[in-house]
Design a protein around this nucleic acid. Structure first.
Lengths: 255, 255
DNA sequence: CGTATACTTGAATTGAGTCAATAAGTGTGG
DNA sequence: CCACACTTATTGACTCAATTCAAGTATACG
């Protein structure tokens, strides 16, 4: 928590130092943005953030609705500020693979080329910042820190993708499910949610399509983990990580 | 072998070019670099390329030898100029997943954080350009086009990783093998190698660990494809893509 | 409440893995 | 050039983890 005495709205978050005072810049949505610390824009403040704000459009998406589809012209890039977004690819016969779940602060649509390579859909209500791609790219010349930040985020995403490749290529169903829970727990921690209980905002079908399994296998595996006492299931979308050592061991196949 | 008349030692590695006398810049290894058009440095020329050269060290790697290991301090980044590099991750019990094969022009080691998240090994003799990470990152301030180029390459890599995630999560063994052949063919085309015959520089074990299969399944699947007449096998590491329509259909599961 | 939707559980099936035995290269030194 | 050892690839028989098919049982919703 950094606080600089600027007169900012109540919320979670507030504008960084920069030009507060009398005739400052209206940091509008950013001032109240819950994802501010996590998002790519956290390297900006004051005038620089103002510049970014000028090309930003806020948007919302409702449960299950697409933000864009695979193959659509890639005109915009997005930043998730609230909710969870599911990114997926489909084979012609309908088999689906979810390549990631995006949480507040995550970036979306930074693909090369002129069409999106995947579909993005909101899981439950979500809010996003939208930017015209070319405008954001142009802004990089003015705000080099922003570009560096995005390169760093791309590198992180690449590392996450490689972890997922290892999971899909070589882990068992049990290891996949545990790795998934650990990932959700880690992301929850990053967002400041402490405690050993994780929330599953997505359906079993989504989990299955993310882990390269079927709904049935996911369900059976979760049930088994609970029977083995390494997790507890207060409800179907809440998981208590009960035995952290055991989970750690399972994740990497030491069992 | 790159030779530009500069007096460089024979060995493994040699000092960066620097400004060699006369008038004009010694573009040393770059002038003779076979991967120049494909690599990230292709956006530079003249003085700018000279700047990059100052922080570059050429190195070679021999068959099977590691360029770096997962967990090593991530001091350098690399650019493959000749040969093929295999990037892999391992689970504690020895299961291996190859996350990618890198060809001339491909970039390597751009991970965030201070340790490499994967192992990189040469398949057969290879040559690489090596840069100290911090020096290259600093150079971005002087050469913004270079940074943009790298961001674009990272975006491409991310798209490729997502294709691989779809493959591993949802495709059958037959579809995986065909997708792999198509990928190799596409990359060969990018490097200017035309014709329907592709070369497999990697072993069946490497292919298996890339496709999330076993050696036996890879072998059986390739044999079956040949029996079905969609490919031909002049030798165990050469594949003729005989029936392109059929291959296209198999790749996406339309069969 | 009734009805759709999501999740769990069970039984049978199967695609890919495992174990095991050749076969085909590759290289080395006599 | 051949014999030997060694590595790599193929092929076969059997097994098994995960899928498929098929009920059931919660859970949410108009």
């Amino acid at each position: 928590m950094s606080s600089t005495g600027a007169k900012v709205p109540s919320a979670d978050i507030f504008a960084p130092g920069g030009h507060a005072s009398g005739q400052g810049i209206n940091l509008g949505p950013c001032a109240a943005c819950a994802a501010r610390q996590l998002a790519f824009c956290n390297v900006l403040d004051g005038d620089d953030l103002g510049r970014l704000l000028q090309i930003l459009t806020e948007s919302t998406a409702t449960s299950g609705h697409a933000i864009f589809y695979e193959g659509d012209e890639a005109e915009h890039v997005y930043n998730v500020t609230e909710g969870v977004v599911r990114v997926s690819k489909m084979l012609p016969d309908g088999r689906r693979q979810i390549t990631g779940f995006l949480f507040p602060g995550d970036f979306l649509g930074l693909s090369h080329g002129d069409a999106y390579a995947y579909t993005a859909e909101a899981i439950g209500p979500a809010r996003l910042c939208r930017f015209k791609r070319d405008k954001l790219l142009n802004l990089f010349d003015e705000l080099p820190t922003l570009e560096k930040r995005l390169l760093g985020m791309a590198a992180d995403e690449l590392a996450a993708a490689q972890d997922q490749i290892l999971l899909l290529g070589r882990k068992t169903a049990r290891e996949r499910v545990v790795s998934f829970f650990q990932l959700l727990a880690k992301q929850a921690r990053k967002r400041g949610e402490m405690g050993g209980t994780i929330h599953l905002p997505m359906s079993r079908a989504d989990i299955a399509d993310y882990l390269g399994l079927t709904i049935e296998t996911v369900s059976r595996t979760i049930t088994k983990l609970a029977k083995d006492g390494v997790i507890e299931l207060p409800s179907s979308n809440k998981v208590v990580l009960a035995d952290l050592d055991a989970l750690e061991a399972i994740e990497m196949g030491e069992e």
